[in-house]
Amino acid sequence: MSFGPQEKTVLDLWDSGLTILQIVVQTGIKKENVGRILSSFDGSSDQRIDEASIRAGSQALLAAIQQVQA
């Protein structure tokens, strides 16, 4: 599959573990374009977003529990 430099950059950053927002900040590419690139070239993009949301929610819950226990 052939793709341009912008797509390569986004996919490389995604594969290195960056989130969509981190890619947006690092590259200056609009969030919608990053999402489009990931959806076009990486079938796991939706799953990664869900996993990130779950991790963030779990971290917030743990912090709240620790605050109550303190």
Rank of each mutant, 00 (worst) to 15 (best):
M1S: 06
F3P: 00
F3N: 05
G4C: 10
G4R: 05
G4W: 01
P5T: 07
P5E: 08
P5M: 03
P5A: 07
Q6E: 11
E7T: 06
E7L: 00
K8L: 02
K8H: 00
K8P: 00
T9S: 04
T9P: 02
V10D: 01
V10Y: 04
L11F: 02
D12T: 08
D12F: 00
L13Y: 06
L13K: 09
L13C: 00
W14G: 01
W14K: 00
W14I: 01
W14S: 03
D15P: 00
D15L: 04
D15E: 11
G17I: 02
G17V: 03
L18M: 11
L18N: 07
L18H: 09
T19A: 08
T19G: 06
T19L: 06
T19Y: 03
I20Y: 07
I20C: 10
I20K: 11
L21K: 13
Q22T: 04
Q22S: 07
I23A: 02
V25I: 10
V25L: 08
Q26Y: 06
Q26R: 14
T27Q: 09
G28E: 07
G28C: 05
G28V: 03
G28P: 02
K30I: 07
E32M: 11
E32Q: 12
N33Y: 07
V34Q: 02
V34M: 01
V34Y: 03
V34W: 01
G35W: 03
R36Y: 12
R36V: 08
I37D: 01
I37V: 10
L38Q: 04
L38A: 04
S39E: 11
S39I: 04
S39Q: 11
S39P: 00
S40P: 00
S40Q: 15
S40I: 09
F41G: 01
F41I: 01
D42N: 12
D42M: 08
D42K: 15
G43P: 05
S44R: 15
S44I: 08
S45W: 09
S45H: 13
D46C: 05
D46H: 11
Q47A: 12
Q47N: 11
R48V: 13
R48H: 12
I49A: 10
D50L: 12
D50P: 00
D50N: 09
D50E: 12
E51Q: 13
E51M: 10
A52C: 05
A52R: 13
S53V: 09
I54W: 01
I54Q: 04
R55E: 15
R55I: 13
R55D: 13
A56K: 10
A56L: 10
G57Y: 01
S58A: 12
Q59G: 05
Q59K: 15
L61Q: 12
L61E: 14
L61P: 00
L62Q: 13
A63Y: 10
A63N: 15
A64S: 15
A64R: 15
A64N: 14
A64E: 15
A64M: 14
I65F: 05
Q66N: 14
V68H: 13
Q69F: 10
Q69A: 14
Q69G: 06
A70N: 14
A70W: 07
